[in-house]
């Protein structure tokens, strides 16, 4: 981080990008810290939510991408509904995650595996298949993580909570829709 920030030449493009249509509200952040105080995961974050909003407004994109903060957000929306400036904070975190995914800068291997595995199953089958999703997630994040489910896995199976379904290959149920969305967003 630069030692001295020149406030007259600040780059507002990050705020514009991650709080689309409402970036001026983002700039109105008063750094009160209600977000940090309301966040159930703040204790585990390397950069507190309050600090991260300041970084957004200062355009410090590398610092934000480097932090693990966004990957600890569980979408509880507490910061957003309590923000005295009415800034859509939780939605902004989702945009930051999107930016990190797009740039291949996900600072959490498990989170990247989670989103990719889920998106694959959703696109391929149109609906969630929990068993296949779990297998894909575990194999692509940390295969040893399967050990953590040695006790719970069989219980879930016996209770009928997860069922074995053979995977299918070939064309996915929502391929066309996903491709069309990518096209419209200019990613293809």
């Amino acid at each position: 981080m630069a030692d001295v920030l020149d406030l007259t030449t600040l780059d507002r493009s990050l705020a514009q990008q991650v709080t689309p249509g409402r970036w001026e509200e983002m700039l109105s952040c008063i750094q009160c810290g209600t977000c940090s105080a309301s966040c159930p995961a703040a204790h585990a974050m390397d950069v507190s939510p309050r600090r991260m909003w300041r970084m957004v407004n200062l355009g410090l994109v590398d610092e934000i991408m480097h932090s693990k903060t966004m990957w600890l957000c569980s979408l509880c929306y507490q910061c957003q509904v309590r923000c005295p400036r009415g800034i859509p904070l939780t939605e902004t975190i989702t945009r930051l995650k999107e930016m990190a995914m797009e740039r291949g800068l996900v600072r959490s291997r498990a989170s990247a595996a989670f989103y990719r595995s889920f998106a694959y199953v959703m696109r391929h089958y149109g609906r969630m298949r929990e068993m296949e999703f779990m297998m894909r997630f575990i194999l692509s994040s940390n295969p040893l993580g399967a050990l953590g489910y040695i006790k719970l896995g069989p219980i879930l199976f016996l209770r009928g909570k997860v069922k074995l379904e053979l995977p299918t290959f070939g064309k996915g149920r929502l391929d066309r829709l996903f491709e069309r969305v990518a096209e419209l967003e200019g990613r293809k």
């Binding site: 689309p20 979408l75 989702t94 945009r95 995650k97 999107e98 995914m101 989670f114 989103y115 889920f118 998106a119 959703m122 149109g126 609906r127 969630m128 149920r173 929502l174 969305v181 990518a182 419209l184 967003e185 990613r187």
Partner: peptide, 14 residues
């Protein structure tokens, strides 16, 4: 089909 859960919006806003 799936509502997108917490995942679709992270893959792309649209």
């Amino acid at each position: 089909t799936c509502c997108g859960a917490s995942v679709a919006a992270v893959m792309s806003d649209l």
